[in-house]
């Protein structure tokens, strides 16, 4: 009896430590990120960081203007959204509503298999196939461009968006579809007016999850965007994203120096963006749930 209660309390403690360490690690990461970024802002005016249009970390004096990097990230991400969201939803509709059963059986696992391709491999394919292709089609000096980054990211987000949207459409009660068809709606009217709105929260979650994977992605984007830290005026220009900047420069700087801290400031800013996006997504999904009961 005694032995058993000792064992019980031992197990409880192990579980407790497991749980609490996750929170502690998270807290430490926050603390580290905040500390380094605040030290940066003591040494470098925040106005020049957020308002600066030049990222020249090695010039004299160094310039840490975030805008080109922010613009690079925005352009690549928005491009990825514009490509992957319509395509992903269209794919999901095709698989769940239009495709004959045998196509569905093949298509869905295949789509999910794409999600298993390591992002570096996607970046590599982008570099050797997509980039020369874009160079040729648009007659560019280099195919390394924001568009190449967008397409690569879109390809990465696509399987998640398709697969989860398809689930959201498939789990809808068959009664909705029957009721709509019985009222004389066509198949497409039923999909557009009834099924898509009813699956809206699932589809939004799918988009968020798909893009969540894509936005944080660094390597594949870094490989195909050309990494020029300039504010782009078109999709066909090279850009450099915030994540790529951290990845490229972190290896060659003095630990504890101003440049080092500038990269942490970018990290903090990225964190705030992702956190806000997640918060909004959560809010949207909650609101959806309330409306559709």
């Amino acid at each position: 009896m005694k032995q058993r209660s000792v064992w019980e309390s031992f197990i409880e403690k192990v579980i407790f430590i497991g749980g609490i360490s996750g929170i502690v690690f998270l807290f430490l990461i926050f603390a580290f990120l905040f500390k380094e970024s605040f030290l940066f802002f003591f040494q470098y005016p925040w106005k020049d960081f957020f308002g600066g249009t030049q990222w020249y970390p090695t010039s004299e004096p160094p310039r840490f203007g975030l805008l080109p990097l922010l613009a690079g990230s925005l352009v690549v991400t928005l491009g990825a959204i514009a490509i992957s969201v319509p395509l992903g939803i269209a794919c999901a509709i095709y698989i769940s509503e239009v495709a004959p059963p045998w196509v569905r059986e093949i298509f869905k696992p295949l789509m999910e298999l794409i999600a298993a391709i390591p992002s570096v491999v996607l970046g590599f394919i982008g570099l050797v196939v997509l980039v020369p292709f874009l160079k040729q089609v648009f007659n560019l000096p280099t195919g390394l461009s924001a568009l190449a980054g967008s397409i690569t990211l879109a390809f990465m987000a696509l399987p998640t968006i398709t697969s989860i949207s398809e689930d959201a459409l498939t789990v809808l009660p068959r009664e909705y579809k029957e009721a709509s068809l019985a009222l004389g709606a066509t198949h497409w009217q039923t999909i557009y007016h009834i099924l898509l709105p009813a699956a809206k929260s699932g589809i939004i979650a799918a988009i968020m999850l798909g893009l969540g994977r894509a936005i944080g992605e660094t390597m594949a984007v870094l490989m195909v965007t050309g990494n020029a830290a300039i504010i782009p005026y078109s999709f066909l220009q090279p850009v450099r994203t915030m994540t790529a900047t951290i990845a490229i420069e972190m290896g060659e700087i003095v630990r504890g120096g101003l440049h080092y801290r500038a990269l942490f400031a970018i990290g903090l800013f990225l964190f705030i963006i992702t956190f806000t996006v997640n918060l909004i997504a959560d809010w949207v999904i909650q609101r959806q749930k309330r409306v559709s009961g």
Binding site: E178, A179, L183, H193, P197, G293
Partner: peptide, 29 residues
């Protein structure tokens, strides 16, 4: 044909929208 021949199902199956939109759906399409 289905517009001319309406159907009420065994289990009530309103759409997950407002009361108004449920009734307005048919006339709209």
């Amino acid at each position: 044909l289905r517009r001319k021949v309406g159907m009420v199902f065994q289990k009530p199956n309103p759409f997950p929208t407002s009361i108004f939109d449920n009734v307005a759906y048919g006339p709209r399409i």
